[in-house]
Every structure is written in structure tokens, then in C-alpha cells.
Amino acid sequence: MEQFTGKVWVLGDDIDTDIIIPTEYLALPTVEDMKQYGFSPLRPELAGQIGEGDIIVAGKNFGCGSSREQAPEIIKALKIKCVIAKSFARIFFRNSINNGLLLIENDQIQEHVKEGDVLDVTLGEKIVHHGASYEIQSLPDNLMEIINAGGLVEAMKKRNGVK
């Protein structure tokens, strides 16, 4: 199983898609152009501070709101390794799988972890924080197939025989 460590950014409950990327920036031509505005209504400085391999730890209902797929794309473009939340909104969940953004559900770690802490994650098994271990589940097989193909675009390319 894949294992990685990352620095934590802590966000609250109900982080909605207008917070992740406000509508006014959706018409920018690329996700690269948009990513500097990620999370700007809540924490304008955050997008500039996030580093490669960092981890977001949030509360319940992460990604609620609109169907905008730029939300997981921006989180991925900011080079966040994974989002750990108590729960995810359903459209955001699908969009993340389809774009290869890793999501982990866990509802215990939030009360222990502080911003800047480092987490040690073993996929499908556990998260380790300050020596304490938190169990995590793996995703259903049909979703792992999409993720293993590298997202839905790659899965469809394979289906259509595109190299």
C-alpha cells in the first residue's frame, strides 16, 4: 500500500465550492490561472502558502455546493496530496475520483490535529499522528479502477483505444 507523509492545513465544516473557487474566477482560461484564488473568500493567503504534498484536514460535508469540477482540480493543482474530512459532498466526491484527487474519510483525527502537524498516511489502512493511529477504509473496487487508470479521462481513453 502507498504510504506518504504531509504537512497539515486545517479547515472547518461545510467548506463549500464557492470557497474553494468563487464563481467570478471560473471563466479564467485554465485551472493554473485560477489556483491562486483557491480558498480566497475564507483565507486569501492560503493558496500561496500550500506546498507540494501537503494535506488538508477538514470537518464534515467538504466540497458542498456547486458541481464545479474546478474545485478538486484546483486542490490538485495546488499539489495537495489528499483531503481528509469527516465526510464529503457527493458531487465533489465523484469529481475528485474522476480527477484522481485522493479523498480519505475519517471523523476522529480532527480533534487532535493542529495546523502545521505532520501526518503519516498508509492508504486503505491508517493515519498516524503523534504516535496515535487512526483506521481508514479503502474505496469500492469500481472507484479504485478509475483511480488506478489515472482518472476518468484515462479510463475512457483506454476504452476508445486512444494512446
Binding site: S66, S67, E69, N99, G151, L152
Partner: peptide
């Protein structure tokens, strides 16, 4: 299905409708 979260609207006439993202929409189009 629609590329907008408020696609749930069509349930008003007893239609199962839900919002999805654009990558998923592209795969349905095909």
C-alpha cells in the same frame, strides 16, 4: 444528469435528476 448541482430540480415531476462534473458529463456524451 446535468453539469450543475441544482439539477435535482427535475424531481418536481418525478424525474431522477442529479448534478455531475464535466469530466463525467464528457463520458456520458460518449
Amino acid at each position: 444528469f446535468g453539469t450543475d448541482s441544482h439539477t435535482t430540480t427535475y424531481g418536481c415531476v418525478g424525474c431522477f435528476s442529479s448534478g455531475i462534473g464535466y469530466t463525467e458529463m464528457a463520458s456520458i456524451l460518449g
